[in-house]
């Protein structure tokens, strides 16, 4: 038999099977989609957790306050020195005047503070540098770098120590969420595997007599197995496409709420799914297809023996 003819017939029988067993096909596809929803929900939670923590980490910064008598040249020199490190994302220079303005703005409703400031008569603030790093792990390095004799005598204060506790808490939380997410994802993947495995086994069990009859009228194993394999692949493909539609449908419909709720972190949630769509759903399709094919082959084995 020519391969084209054989393939055409296998495809025809596949679609006949799907449409003439509509409810079984519908339930199988629904279970595939529900399984993917479960896996993607876990993935979404992990992405949200990562994005939120990343956003929080990005907001954490170290500020070096210089003595009031420190000249602007020294401070800009320190700014250049810090920018030379790969660990540093940005260094913002806040002049003494800007610091004073900022302070006044912050306490515009507090007459006592403003009048106290007026009584001092001069600007009590010095220049400062606000440093953001690539990672919170880099704060210690930056603090150490600023202990160089060239600048250390000019630094009045650094607020790094205030952040240390927050940073270590964030890191601990991040690690715990990472472990919990990993365990949860593993559990759901295991459940998904069991569900898919049993769904396909039931679908093939329903067809066991037909498989026997096909063999009795002279169908070879490939001809009997072909439609079931193709059916499994089609379910995997359709479930993945539906999952893509559901994911982007939900993300699109709830864009406003996600932005309100997660603030800056929402952008990285959207970006993650948009930029990695092919990777995420490609792998999900491949995993689903591989699992379905293996189960199909395994479940059919005993019915193909006669």
């Amino acid at each position: 038999m020519s391969l084209t003819l054989s393939l055409t017939r296998v495809i025809k029988f596949t679609f006949q099977n799907i449409f003439r067993n509509f409810w079984l096909s519908f339930i199988t596809l629904t279970i595939f989609v529900l399984t993917l929803i479960t896996v993607n929900a876990v993935l979404f939670m992990n992405v949200v957790a990562d994005s939120v923590l990343e956003a929080v980490e990005q907001k954490v910064e170290v500020t070096f306050y210089f003595n009031t008598e420190t000249s602007e040249d020294i401070v800009t020199s320190a700014q250049g020195y810090l920018r030379g490190f790969a660990q540093v994302r940005d260094v913002e220079y806040v002049s003494a005047d800007e610091a004073l303005d900022l302070f006044r703005t912050r306490h515009v409703d507090d007459e006592v503070i403003l009048s106290s400031l007026d009584e001092i008569g001069e600007n009590p603030f010095g220049h400062s540098l606000v440093v953001t790093t690539q990672s919170t792990d880099d704060f210690a390095f930056i603090a150490e770098a600023m202990e160089t004799p060239e600048f250390s005598s000019y630094i009045k204060e650094q607020d790094f120590t205030d952040y240390e506790a927050v940073i270590s808490k964030i890191e601990a939380l991040n690690t715990r969420i990472g472990y919990a997410g990993f365990a949860l994802a593993g559990l759901f993947v295991l459940i998904a595997i069991m569900i898919i495995f049993n769904t396909i086994r039931v679908a093939i069990y329903v067809h066991r007599d037909e498989i026997g009859i096909m063999k009795l009228v002279g169908a070879n194993n490939w001809f009997v197995r072909g439609p079931f394999i193709l059916e499994a692949l089609l379910y995997s493909f359709c479930a993945t496409i539906l999952m893509v539609a559901i994911t982007f449908g939900i993300l699109g419909a709830s864009r406003g709420q996600i932005t309100d709720y997660f603030g800056d972190a929402s952008a990285s949630i959207f970006n993650y799914f948009q930029e990695n769509a092919l990777f995420i759903f490609g792998w999900q399709f491949l995993a689903l297809a591989a699992l379905s094919l293996l189960t199909t082959a395994f479940a059919m084995r005993k019915y193909l023996k006669t």
Binding site: S2, R9, Q16, N17, E210, M214, V217, A219, F223
Partner: peptide, 18 residues
Amino acid sequence: LPRKTVLENVKFALEVAG
């Protein structure tokens, strides 16, 4: 084959034979 018509049941034996 319960989900095939009379015609399809008979045809099937020839289809599998190519």
